[in-house]
Design a protein around this nucleic acid. Sequence first.
DNA 1: ATGGTTTTTACTGCGTC
DNA 2: GACGCGGTAAAAACCAT
Length: 322
Amino acid sequence: MTENTRTRVRTSEDERETERSDESLSCPECSGRLVNDEEHGETVCEDCGLVVEEGSVDRGPEWRAFDAQEKSQKSRVGAPTTNTMHDKGLSTNIDWRDKDAYGNSLGSRQREKMQRLRKWNERFRTRDSKERNLKQALGEIDRMASALGLPENVRETASVIYRRALEEDLLPGRSIEGVSTACVYAAARQAGVPRSLDEIAEVSRVEKNEVARTYRYVVRELGLEVKPADPESYVPRFASGLGLSDEAEHRARKLLRNAKEKGVHSGKSPVGLAAAAVYAAALLTNEKTTQAAVSEVADISEVTIRNRYHELLEAEESLGLA
DNA sequence: ATGGTTTTTACTGCGTC
DNA sequence: GACGCGGTAAAAACCAT
């Protein structure tokens, strides 16, 4: 029976749900997750669509542009500053093409001059070790975030965290890769799209153990506030990975919420809980899945799924009787 | 280091397609 | 007979002490 060649799964102490505390980001109606809809200036509930807040400020342009040319004519600002570039995208760039502003080729004297300018500009930009450090780290962060399919805002957050770590001189004695990885891990969790330590270690050049250690260190030193991972935040990823319906997904969330009420989830791995909920939900909505399939996408053993989903269903039943 | 808890591995039995 | 599922025992991993 060597069919199971999955990698082991371990969850760190941080991934464990200890106590339930905050509920400020939840819908008052159905306690679903709240999302910002920038375009309409509203804050709405992901689950029931309740509009919680409206009339917030739209930061987009007040004009419309139908092609790139029009856009460049109407726009009065440059690119937004971003923390994903080591100089926030604010420093000077000299084009590598030897053309002037009108696209004409440069004379040989001019070309030489530009070469020198480029060289010094580059030297100035990555002047000291910190800048170079940051440059490399941000590259790593970007690479890992893409590999994990994490959205832009997570990259941004990870970059900010890294900057702070650098500011506070947390780097000496630690590898750039290790700290970048820890930042990505922390950022993903803060953004509510957590990845397990195993997934993180998969795309990192650093061992899982070191990631965990560095992560703890960074969180402690920076006083970062990272809530215990919410099992629900894993649900969408697993559900779509299995091609399940929205109904099943919704069902899974419900199961988890009930479980939370009952306190069944304390001390258990959130990932396992989420996987079990997804499996149970598929069963309840008569959709075809196997424990093996869920175990595959969630990277959790079938045994754990079995144990958890029994507990989930029990909690559900006793709630029905109450 | 040690003990307690959770997860994983490996294996077995049962029912069904 | 392969497959999905359930259960168990022992090992491993983790956390707290």
